[in-house]
Design a binder for these strands. Structure first.
Length: 214
DNA sequence: ACCCAGGGTCATA
DNA sequence: TATGACCATGGG
């Protein structure tokens, strides 16, 4: 495995390069949950449009999403892509939350139980579940996304074959279980990925692969 | 006109 | 367990 010092140093470097990020970009815990599903393999720009559209059509609340006919929901989130699948997934998740008594009720659950429950919902995979756990429920769970994998790869900190759980454990073993730290760290990784490339023609996916050297 | 984006599921070998 | 097809819009 890799040295925890390097993970800690990476965080320090990111933080003083970019400063605090204040994530997740949402006005409520429920909005985080909606965004987590909508952003699956989709640029955040497209998700913003969808969320704006949802808000324009009515209050962004659990009961409303549950009650909305699927095709109407799909139409409202169209700009986020995969809209039929996502409408279904969103209602799977919201239906479950609703059946459990809402966000405040499941917020009482311990992290392990909540994570297992989320993962058992069709359309909620490890990253979506962990986005929700970290950013909506403020649990110390580290989110692994494609940006995280790419960055660790480029820095030579991993080999590339590691599965989701292995990478998550790597961060969670090295870092103190502090949700604010995990929040900021992941947010900084995304911020770094979105930074414009400083050496124009040297890498293929310039915008996300190799921005400012770390 | 192509490539990609803050994934996940399902069918197949 | 490990690939591949599929879902689909919008910006570069």
């Amino acid at each position: 495995m890799i040295s925890c010092d390097k993970l800690a140093a990476l965080y320090d470097r990111l933080l003083d390069t970019y400063g605090p990020q204040r994530w997740w970009p949402a006005e409520s815990a429920f909005e985080v949950i909606v965004g987590a599903v909508l952003t699956q393999n989709t640029s955040w720009k497209n998700v913003e449009k969808a969320i704006t559209g949802l808000k324009d059509a009515g209050p962004l609340e659990l009961g409303r999403i549950v009650a909305l006919p699927r095709d109407e929901l799909a139409e409202l989130i169209k700009s986020s892509g995969f809209f039929n699948v996502k409408a279904q997934r969103l209602q799977n998740l919201c239906g479950w939350l609703h059946s459990q008594g809402g966000l405040d009720a499941v917020a009482q659950w311990d992290t392990g139980r909540l994570r297992q429950a989320l993962l058992s919902i069709n359309g909620v995979g490890p990253e979506t579940a962990d986005d929700i756990l970290l950013y909506a429920f403020e649990r110390p769970v580290f989110v692994i996304d494609t940006y995280t994998r790419r960055l660790l790869n480029r820095l030579g900190l991993i080999r590339g074959r590691e599965d989701y759980e292995t990478l998550r454990q790597m961060f969670e073993c090295c870092l103190a279980p502090d949700h604010r730290l995990y929040n900021e760290y992941h947010a900084l990784i995304v911020r770094h990925a979105k930074e414009k490339c400083t050496h124009h023609n040297q890498c293929r996916h310039c915008a996300v692969e190799a921005p400012i050297p770390l």
